[in-house]
C-alpha cells in the first residue's frame, strides 16, 4: 500500500487512520504505511497537518482542573479512618517519662480523649450528611408537607421530632429520613436553601450546650431545645446556617 496514489474514496477511508496515527493508536507498521500515503497525497497530508495543529492548540488550551480543596477534604475525611492507633502508642511511652512529663502527657491524654468525643460526633454527623448525597439516600420520605413528614417518623422512633415549616425564611423542607449516629437511631430533617441541602439531626437528649464547629468546609451547628439535641450540617456558609438555626428555634 506504500505510495498509493491519491484517490478520493480511499482517502475517505484514510481519514480515521490519519487521526489514529496522531492519537498514537497505530502500530509501527500501519504508521509507516500511512506515512507513505501522506507523502503522495496532499489532501491527507493537509488533514494530518490540520489535526496536528488542533491537537497542539487543544493541548495548550485545555488542562486538568484541580478539584476544589473542600471536595478533596470531604472525601478524605469520609474515606480515611481517623488516626486512632497514634494514641495507643503514646500510652506505651508513658512509663519511661519522668513524673512531670508524665503529668503533662496525662493532661494531653485527657484532652485527646476528651476532644475526639466531639470530633467523633462531628465526623459521624458529617458522614451522615455526605452519605445522604448518595442517590436515593437523602430522603426516605420526600415531602415538603410537614404534615406528611411528621407522622412518618411515628412508630419508627421513640420520640416525635418537631417539623417546622420554614419556607417563609427561605428554607424549604424537602423531606426526612432515619439515620444512625453513634449507634442511636435519629431523625433527620432535610431542608434546602438555594441548592444547598441542610441535614438536621435530632434525638432526645437533655442539655443546654450550643456550639458551632467546622470541618472539611462544612459547618455544623449544635444546640439543645425542648429536651432534644439538634445538629445542623451543611455546606452553606456559617452566617446562613445561623439564620436557619434561628428560624428553626423561633418556630418552636
Amino acid at each position: 500500500m506504500t505510495g498509493t496514489t491519491p484517490n478520493p474514496v480511499a482517502c475517505d477511508d484514510m481519514k480515521l487512520l490519519v487521526q489514529a496515527d496522531l492519537d498514537g493508536e497505530l502500530d509501527a507498521a500501519a504508521s509507516a504505511v500511512l506515512a507513505g500515503h501522506l507523502r503522495d497525497c496532499p489532501g491527507c497530508a493537509a488533514l494530518a497537518a490540520e489535526l496536528g495543529g488542533l491537537a497542539h492548540a487543544l493541548h495548550h488550551t485545555l488542562r486538568t482542573e484541580a478539584a476544589p480543596a473542600r471536595l478533596r477534604a470531604a472525601l478524605e475525611a469520609q474515606l480515611m479512618p481517623p488516626p486512632a492507633p497514634a494514641r495507643r502508642r503514646w500510652r506505651f511511652r508513658w512509663p519511661v517519662l519522668s513524673f512531670g512529663a508524665g503529668a503533662a502527657v496525662a493532661a494531653a491524654l485527657v484532652l485527646m480523649v476528651a476532644l475526639p468525643q466531639g470530633d467523633n460526633l462531628d465526623g459521624a454527623l458529617l458522614s451522615g450528611h455526605i452519605r445522604a448525597m448518595q442517590p436515593g439516600h437523602l430522603i426516605d420520605v420526600p415531602s415538603s408537607d410537614r404534615h406528611t413528614v411528621k407522622p412518618w417518623f411515628e412508630g419508627k422512633l421513640d420520640f416525635a421530632p418537631p417539623v417546622p415549616d420554614l419556607t417563609a425564611d427561605g428554607f424549604v423542607l424537602i423531606g426526612g429520613r432515619l439515620d444512625v449516629i453513634e449507634g442511636r437511631s435519629v431523625a433527620v430533617l432535610v431542608y434546602r436553601h438555594d441548592k444547598h441541602p441542610i441535614n438536621l439531626f435530632i434525638w432526645p437528649e437533655p442539655g443546654t450546650a450550643t456550639g458551632e464547629t467546622r470541618r472539611d468546609g462544612y459547618v455544623l451547628r449544635h444546640w439543645h431545645q425542648g429536651g432534644l439535641a439538634l445538629h445542623a450540617v451543611s455546606d452553606l456558609d456559617a452566617a446562613e446556617l445561623a439564620v436557619f438555626v434561628r428560624a428553626w428555634q423561633g418556630q418552636q
Binding site: E65, A67, L71, R72, A74, L75, I130, R131
Partner: peptide, 27 residues
C-alpha cells in the same frame, strides 16, 4: 480526583454541579 472533577466540569459545566457529581460518583 482532579481528572474526575475536570470531566464533570466539562459535562455539567457549573462548578457546584460538578462538585456534586464527583461526590456522588465517589459514593
Amino acid at each position: 480526583l482532579d481528572a474526575a472533577y475536570t470531566l464533570a466540569r466539562w459535562l455539567v459545566r457549573e462548578p457546584a454541579a460538578a462538585e456534586d457529581v464527583v461526590q456522588e460518583a465517589m459514593v
